Simulated scan of single mutants.
Amino acid sequence: MLTVGLDIGYSNLKIVYGDNTEVSPKMIKRPAGAAPLDHLGQRIMGNDDSLHVLVDGKEFAAAVSHDRIENWPRELHKDYTATESYRALFNAGLLLTEMSEIDCVITGLPTNQYLDAELREHLTKIMRGEHQITPRRKVVVHDVKIVPQPLGGFVDWMHGLDDPSQIEDSSVLVVDPGFFSVDWVLLVNGEFKRASSGTSLDATSVVLDEAAAMIAQDHGGNPGRSKLENAVRAERSTVSVFGERIEIAPYLADASAKVGHIACSQIQESLRKENSSIDQIVLVGGGAPFFEASIKEAFAKTPINLAKEAVFANARGFWRGGAA
């Protein structure tokens, strides 16, 4: 059975795919920029690594850094799944698998959007069926499953436990800090507790905006969110401001503390009606390092489990759940 775990984020596109008989699936991460081809800046140094895909017959460049796109809006809103950019990234994900036929695609939605049954049904219809992803390439997707985004991280964490039965009666909080939103789900006795799960918009993009403003205050120039985002993605420790290399770690730490406190307060508020304490917290997603300290402070007595290669945790869990 050929299964694809697809995490189409606001900053990164993550694909985990392979046959369900495989122990270690293939994993790919690309930037989540997408726009019509004529809105892509021409690269004069280095190779053009953009993927060219079709969306309703229109040629798009996909899986590129957002700062390469000109005069095309960055989709940073709750209707992301309804945009052409999202569909271009979906087609790019299919292209990267090199498959012509896929048994099941599993993907996630922010927790509050997952609760919208009409949205789940609409997204399933968009993803299922035959897709003309390039002029000469079609991909058939036979089945689609939509889950709450952090649930992938929970499945991935469970897979790594020596004895999963030890947490059968546990309350597990999965926190997924992404670029657009911080999502969390509470699982008690393995059941999804909707009333205590939710979404905060005080997410990684807000951390980067805050850090950029702090840099501007100290150095007189704002590097902008995109420059910081690219530096974090490439694991660079500095950005250029007026020709000077500025260490970003102190600014990211201060911004993370400020924004993380707000997000953690929202998580705690959603849990106020729970009678029992949280036994385990699983921290997943590309923004996990920004929020780890705040979560440890807010839930000082609860063990925190930071996912290995946290940016892939949800997509890995989607694949593991679909391949099971």
Rank of each mutant, 00 (worst) to 15 (best):
G46L: 08
D19R: 08
L187A: 08
D38F: 09
D38A: 12
S181M: 09
N71S: 07
L228F: 11
I126A: 03
K125W: 06
I146D: 06
H66T: 02
L54H: 05
V16K: 02
D183H: 12
Q42G: 00
S277C: 05
T111S: 10
K125R: 07
H122L: 12
V182Q: 04
H261P: 10
E98Q: 12
T302C: 13
P223C: 03
S240L: 15
D209C: 09
P135V: 03
A203S: 14
I126F: 07
P25L: 05
E269D: 14
I102N: 00
E309S: 10
L208N: 04
E235Q: 15
I102V: 14
F291C: 02
I106R: 10
L94E: 00
H52L: 14
L208V: 00
L109T: 11
L173V: 01
Q166C: 12
D116P: 01
R74T: 03
D176K: 03
Q217C: 05
K193D: 00
V232T: 02
S171G: 11
A234Y: 04
N112K: 12
V4W: 05
G243L: 13
A288V: 00
E309N: 12
A34Y: 05
A35S: 08
M214N: 14
D254E: 14
Q266M: 15
A324I: 07
V282M: 09
S200F: 03
P25A: 06
S11Q: 13
G260R: 04
W319M: 03
G160R: 15
A313P: 01
V182E: 07
E168L: 15
D79I: 10
G160Y: 09
E309Y: 14
D67C: 13
F60L: 06
